[in-house]
Design a protein around this nucleic acid. Sequence first.
DNA 1: CGGGACTCTTGATCCGGATCAAGGCACGGG
DNA 2: CCCGTGCCTTGATCCGGATCAAGAGTCCCG
Lengths: 253, 253
Amino acid sequence: MHSENQAGRLPEPPSPIADDGDETHFCRTCAFASACQAVGYGKPELRELHCLVEHVGPFRGGEYVFRTGNPFRAIFAVRSGTVKTSMVDKEGREQVLGFYLPGEVIGLNAIYPEHFPCDAIALETSHFCRFSFPAMSALAARMPAVQTHLFRLLSKELGSASLLAGDHSADERMAAFLTDLGQRYAVRGFSGTQFQLSMSRGDIANYLRLAAETVSRVLSRFRSQGLIQVEGRQLEILDPAGLRHIGRSLLPD
Amino acid sequence: MHSENQAGRLPEPPSPIADDGDETHFCRTCAFASACQAVGYGKPELRELHCLVEHVGPFRGGEYVFRTGNPFRAIFAVRSGTVKTSMVDKEGREQVLGFYLPGEVIGLNAIYPEHFPCDAIALETSHFCRFSFPAMSALAARMPAVQTHLFRLLSKELGSASLLAGDHSADERMAAFLTDLGQRYAVRGFSGTQFQLSMSRGDIANYLRLAAETVSRVLSRFRSQGLIQVEGRQLEILDPAGLRHIGRSLLPD
DNA sequence: CGGGACTCTTGATCCGGATCAAGGCACGGG
DNA sequence: CCCGTGCCTTGATCCGGATCAAGAGTCCCG
């Protein structure tokens, strides 16, 4: 993998979105772009980080990236597509834990038990950067910047559970969810106001601890209030400030 | 700190509970006992880990261990007492994030933003081991066992958010909460069936996303069903299996 | 001693969202 | 083409737990 680069110069700092057609460039979408910046572009150490990445995919919608109980060997950065993680409890009910967009990392919660505690399911055709974890943590032991980056990724993930916290109304949850999605798209260079909801209403409902009917109703209400435009899974946020205000108690800042 | 040990031999593997009167022994309650085991008792590297610990306290009930916005410099392992962490949202409402018992670690979620995102408040007189985080991560860069341990602590914390997940009934939440507390006490060598609820009904309610009245009612019902014995904050679990069964959908295994 | 603040418990009422039910639409296969 | 199967939307009803309210016990402080 990336054999061209192992002998030559590393590419320039990548732009936000990787060109799928050119596997030889450093993956710009992957969450380790910031680790690379920390190490410093052009530094020889970057090559080591670069070389332990393996591009995997495509996974079609519905396919498992990993499953509950699989031995933990690697973490995955989403390059394209969307993933949901979910657990199935003893009663057989699914519990959606999160959605992961391009640039985000899945698998971090498997470090400790060394087996994946949840399923990761592609919601649409998706590609990933696979990072062997043993290799990664060996590298982290030699490169403080990589160690720091891993600590930060883990710590950040700890803070992101807040969307489902508290006894909040369906409106607050939904508004916060849409605002959060928009921000996460925006931070990677996508539009933060116009995007595709790649998950079903049922998945959203499950994630937000609501009934699918309630999700549908709230979206309809938001539309009739001029906050959003929805057509199936295509979403446009017409009034970001209004939406943010409704969900303010669940959002940072 | 620990100057006696810096010159002499390290103490034997400590017993589960630190003797508060003897600050010179390695703190057995603190969560890094397992890191010490990983390094290997008696190894000279252990001294380095040992020496970056600072014992702090006592904090009386109601005192802040750290506050939202404080610069992140250290993590804390609870040696004795109990701590709650909570955020205050824009509306001024408190949100309890978790309770931490002896042996558990607080502050990990501050690694990324480098400022504490929440308050940590002692619920009763408490003592802590304070680990300077810069020193700790420098050590981790040289000692893979310490790095691994930190990764595991973080990853474990990621998995522990499950008690508040899902649309579960008040009974399920409460049963799971009590069972979880019992397990966490048991794992540190305390009784897992007889212990003190060091937090108020209001704190439990806030944490479980219930009203305080509901918590009170559920506890009364559990008592009348012979599942538990409660007298104020003193709790005894009379039927661990029954309780576990009620909360099964929220509990691991 | 008494009074105020706080916590806990129990009762009565009310409401948000779950649940049940029905219908529309898009898609794929025979 | 029709039919089956998901997914989504909207309406009607119901219930668990929030909220309001009252009272008891405890502790601290004057």
